[in-house]
Design a protein around this nucleic acid. Sequence first.
DNA 1: GAGACGTGGCC
DNA 2: TGGCCAAGTCT
Length: 366
Amino acid sequence: MLTTENKTQLITLLQIELLTWFEGSKRDLPFRRTKNPYAIWISEIMAQQTQIDTLIPYYTHFIELFPDVAALALATEDQVIKAWEGLGYYSRARNLHKAAKIIMSDYDGCMPDTFSGLIKLPGIGPYTGGAIASIAFNEKVSAVDGNVLRVICRYCNSFMDIGEAKTKKIVTQWVEAILPEAAGNFNEGLMELGAVICTPQSPKCLVCPVRLGCQSFACGTTGELPVKKKKQKQVRKEMEVGILKHQGELFFVRRPSSGLLAGMWSFPIVETTTDTGVDIKRKLEEYFPELSDPVFIGESRHVFSHIIWEMKLYQFELPSGVFESPESYTFGKDKETLPIRTQFKSLDAIDDLALPVAFSKLLILL
DNA sequence: GAGACGTGGCC
DNA sequence: TGGCCAAGTCT
């Protein structure tokens, strides 16, 4: 990193210009109008792997529903996941809830106010701990996310692979070493710069406040940086979805408490090789022996970060009569049990069910 | 270290 | 369309 003789000058330029630019140009975001550690915590968790524009409505709603740690701890996990519905990476919501309970029980209701205290909480890793500690508590620690990695690697014209842990370690140490007193603003400024100027594609170097010190700009390598090795393609899976209708209601099942879409509501769904509806019929027959034959009603694709579901929907009917909703339902290899596993619900009464997009987008096909 | 873990936007 | 990307953490 930065081996030139005018290293000190370049670092000073970065510090001064970045802080000045951030002060004058930062976006007006709801969580920038507060120093409330709780609010900043929520915003930082939501910001993980998520663009700011996406999270804003969720943030506002979440703070209204759960205005402080106590309110969050008092809520049910179902309520918290429901508030996260559509945001993705749902373990973030479950960890948030767990952490709130821990803060109430082990910390007398007060959030830890140091980096080392914060990262002990579930869902708070080195980035989030650094962000909360520096922004809300003025601790002089770094917060290195994808933006910071990109900005620093470009500024130093470094060709290290930002996907490697080693790179993150080096960049973290580098930032720690040049951190000014206003560490929170510096961290946020680095991220803001990465988000609006030093973007992955087509960085806006001509309006960049630190271009005069940027070694990548000077060398004309901004198109090659940062170096990041490609990730693997998603695995395609053929899935059969069972739409079980009975007296105007649909059959929903709750997913296991760990793994993909953990704890969320779902239609019965199985991976298939036959592609005819027989696999999902066999699954449903475990719980409803008197089942009609499958009727194909449509198909849909859903792309996750690591899987692609090619879904075929099959509708089933139950003979007239009363059918109890089964107490248990298993997806195959799930271990932990959650309170309510299955439910018959009419479409206009599913507001309290946390339904992932993979399934909510199927509703228009019904 | 590598893989699991969502979703929406962009080209 | 398909691939890539976005304020990461946990296992």
